[in-house]
Structure formats: structure tokens, C-alpha cells
Design a protein around this nucleic acid. Structure first.
Lengths: 137, 137
DNA sequence: CTCGCTTACGCGATTCGTAAATATA
DNA sequence: TATATTTACGAATCGCGTAAGCGAG
């Protein structure tokens, strides 16, 4: 199988609490679910992530290393799940476009529709010229 | 349901090729699998990701935005899947530890075992002192 | 005996593929 | 008709919970 986000969550919770049982309680699942997730993770990565003791679990060296990357995954996923950013990603400005009459009438309208739907913030200014006048840019 | 990496992979492949069928071929799955992944994604996010046409699909504005985050997820996952980094994360150095004889004999050995297992690169130097000499640090 | 992790096993949900349905040029 | 997406549905797989099994203290 392939890496699953659910496995990552189970792993992080376990690593942070040091107990499979506590992680399971925090995630509202049973111990067996968490155990099998970790087992699957270790199998997929080919490395042991935890040392098991009678009073809980501790991260191995590989486990520590993977924890950092697991946190990166969790961050990117929760970022993607969160609603649209209206900061930093916003695109706006003005574009001047020179076109001949034929282009303006036939090809442009559907293109502009898609363009505006994709970049609502962009202002497009159209300028009509004769074909040869445009091409000597 | 919750976000799945498989869905993210299906989405990215579809966005990059502009065709569900091409994405499915590239991923060695059928169209229906990709279709349902995208449908599930759109349901989970509550936003439409693609506009469907007769000759393929194109990203909506929300789709473009999500694509960037999907790439971030893919990057963090492939980074986590890749073997251990031996660069940047490496920890080494030397630690000097002063202990009384009792501590050295009874409590230290198991602690050191776990410590070395976690940080193989660290050298630990032990110095035995009388108890009162240590405590006047 | 108690506490904590693991294993066994059955059920419900999810995913996938085959194949039919739909839509556009 | 040719190409592309969507839908229907049965089969295989996956994830979870219950409950029993170990191991250490």
C-alpha cells in the first residue's frame, strides 16, 4: 500500500504522547487502529519508528527524523484544507492586449471568459489595430 | 471522509494533463477511479476544481489555488518517503557529564543506552566526582 | 493482577474495474 | 461516429472495533 494521511496523524499523536493508548483516545479511535497504522508505516518505510516498552513507546532515531517530515505533511495538508487564501496568492494588475478586429470578434471572447474566471483580479484592456501595425512590435 | 493522498495524486495528474483519461493512463488506473477521486475532493473542499468540456477539463480558479497546495503536499510526502537525510539533520558533538558513583552505576546505563540509540553521533564523556563537589556548580 | 501494546477476526465502508450511459463535434 | 466524462454496480481491499493474547512490573 501507499502512505496515508490517516497513518501520519496516528503517528504524530503517538509520538507526541508517547503512548499508543493516549493517542488513540485523543483521536477517538481504538488502540488497535493506531497500532496497525504504525505497523503499516514502519512496513512502508522499511524502518522501525518506535521502541516498545511496557509503559509506552519512545521514538527511535529514524522515528525522530520521520516526525519532522510528518509535521511538514500535516502542515501542508491542513493548509490545503483550510479555505482559500485571500492573502499572498492574490493576483491583480492590468494587461494591455493589442488585437486585430478578426481576432477580437472570433477568438477572444471564449478565451477572455476563461481568463477572467481564472484571474478575477486582472483588468484586461483591449486595443484594436490593423494587423500589420501590430506585428511590427 | 478525510483528505487522501491518492486523491491528491489523481488531482495533480489530471490538472497537469488536462484530461481525466490521460491522468488515469499515467497512474495505471481507470477513468472512473480518477473521476470519483476528483468528485470526492470537490465534495470535501466544498469547491469545484475543474470545468468539464467535451475535450477534457480545465482548472477553475479554486482549482488553480488548490493545485499549488496539492504540489506542496506531494513534495512533503515524497520527501518523507525518501530515505533518511544524512545532511542537515545530522547531530554530533561532545557532551561532558559529571556524575557521582551511585548515579553512574545505577541510573545512567539504561539512560545512556536510549540516548545513544537516539543520537548516535554524540560522544558522551563521563567524569566521576564526589556528590558535594558536583553540586557546587 | 494491572497496565500497555499486539494479534485475530468479522463487519461496514471505500476503491477499483467493467461496462453502459451521456455529451459534444 | 469518435472522443471524453460520468454513472451503475459487483468484487476486492481497507480500516475499525471487540476481544483475546502477551510481557513487564
Amino acid at each position: 500500500m501507499s502512505l496515508t494521511f490517516r497513518q501520519v496523524r496516528h503517528f504524530i499523536a503517538t509520538a507526541e504522547s508517547g503512548r499508543v493508548s493516549a493517542a488513540a483516545a485523543a483521536l477517538n479511535v481504538t488502540q488497535s487502529a493506531v497500532t496497525s497504522s504504525i505497523k503499516a508505516l514502519e512496513a512502508e518505510l522499511g524502518r522501525k519508528l518506535f521502541d516498545r516498552h511496557s509503559n509506552g513507546v519512545t521514538l527511535t532515531f529514524d522515528g525522530h527524523e520521520f516526525l519532522q517530515r510528518a509535521r511538514a505533511i500535516e502542515a501542508s495538508v491542513s493548509d490545503a484544507t483550510r479555505g482559500p487564501h485571500r492573502w499572498g496568492t492574490q493576483v491583480d494588475g492590468t494587461v494591455d492586449v493589442a488585437v486585430s478586429y478578426t481576432v477580437a470578434g472570433y477568438f477572444l471572447p471564449p478565451l477572455l471568459t476563461r481568463f477572467w474566471r481564472t484571474f478575477p483580479g486582472i483588468t484586461v484592456r483591449l486595443h484594436e489595430f490593423q494587423r500589420d501595425a501590430i506585428e511590427q512590435s
